[in-house]
Write a protein that binds this DNA or RNA. Structure first.
Lengths: 190, 190
DNA sequence: GGGATTGATAGACTCAGTCCAGAAAATGAT
DNA sequence: ATCATTTTCTGGACTGAGTCTATCAATCCC
């Protein structure tokens, strides 16, 4: 995943990690909205233009960990792993410190639709993934209402588990436990 | 709802409707992203600043009908109507033409996260509303996992119903039918 | 060394969204 | 009628995200 590259071109500087670190520091010091992309790149020692080589938008910085988990889930599902097993696997890989910056910056989240929205884009991605991974019942079309309901409800449950886990504070149970309980409540499929 | 005002101050020009109409026209002619707020307000004959007296953001224009439905739902729930009855009421009020601009502009939606995000903000609003309206079980806290799962799953089902209804095309069944079927699939509460 | 490829940079540009000071239009009181 | 007050409308300046383009730098392969 990281870099199986040996071929042509100028090698990337270590910019990505540097930018992430600079951003995390500045968000703590000044908050998300109080920090500009220019400040981040200045502290990271790169140009502003470089930022957009690595990230599509400022809010991407808030969801790095979540995006990583979603990518892992996509990998597992594509490799043929059963859905619930894949979900459990990814949950087990998420350590107690993997709380996205978006949540520690939640004062901003409360007021600003922009941040809520950037988070929900991830939810939509999960829902779409689930919809493609759920077993279709006989004669059921790709856009069946029942399929959509199952996918969305399941996504809702996954998100609820994750949200409650976050709110559980530092001494909470592992995410996998929350997920198990949440999935038990939606006995929609299998 | 509209205007029970007789008191002081300069009366509003008919600006709001004018802006909505101008925007709808321009979005059809030029697409959402091809239209600037300045163009909209020019056609509507008001200043750019006035736009932000009526709408919080450009993307609000895409969700006027959805926002109206959500507000109705909030009213009904606050007035003490049972949740499922309130949902059914609002669904029954939604005519076949009430497809938000966001959907007719869906070519833009497909590619641009911004539009997905603006729509999902509405989903979050619905989920929050459901969470506050769902009956709490005995000894269940405000941030209970089970409560969150029920609220989110239900929101997912509502959204699935709405989405399938939209996709059903012009000769589809009433939204209320889709909603009934979707809710029947999530037998989580009551 | 000479391409070819890829990454980094600078700079200009568009546009959404914020802010503010002031003009315009109404009301009610004196 | 005049004045103070309240609310809307307007113009203009400003910030900052995101796009685009041209150019330079670093690496590989020949």
């Amino acid at each position: 995943m990281k870099s199986e590259r040996m071929s042509a071109g100028r090698p990337r500087a270590s910019s990505r990690d540097t930018i992430e670190e600079a951003a995390a520091e500045l968000f703590l010091e000044q908050s998300y909205h109080g920090t500009t992309i220019e400040e981040i790149t200045q502290r990271a020692g790169v140009s502003r233009a470089t930022f957009f080589n690595y990230f599509g938008s400022k809010s991407d910085l808030l969801w790095i960990d979540a995006d990583h988990a979603i990518e892992r889930l996509e990998e597992l599902v594509e490799s043929g792993k059963p859905l619930r097993a894949a979900l459990a696997s990814v949950a087990a890989e998420v350590g107690p410190e993997r709380v996205p910056l978006a949540v520690t910056q939640s004062d901003a989240m409360g007021t600003r639709d922009e941040l809520v929205a950037s988070g929900l884009v991830r939810v939509a991605r999960v829902a779409a993934l689930l919809r493609s991974a759920l077993p279709q019942e006989a004669g059921e079309g790709r856009h069946s209402l029942a399929l959509n309901v199952r996918a969305n409800s399941l996504a809702g449950a996954v998100v609820a588990a994750w949200g409650s886990w976050i709110m559980g504070g530092i001494d909470r149970a592992p995410l996998a436990d929350y997920l198990r309980d949440a999935l038990a409540l939606v006995q929609l499929e299998q």
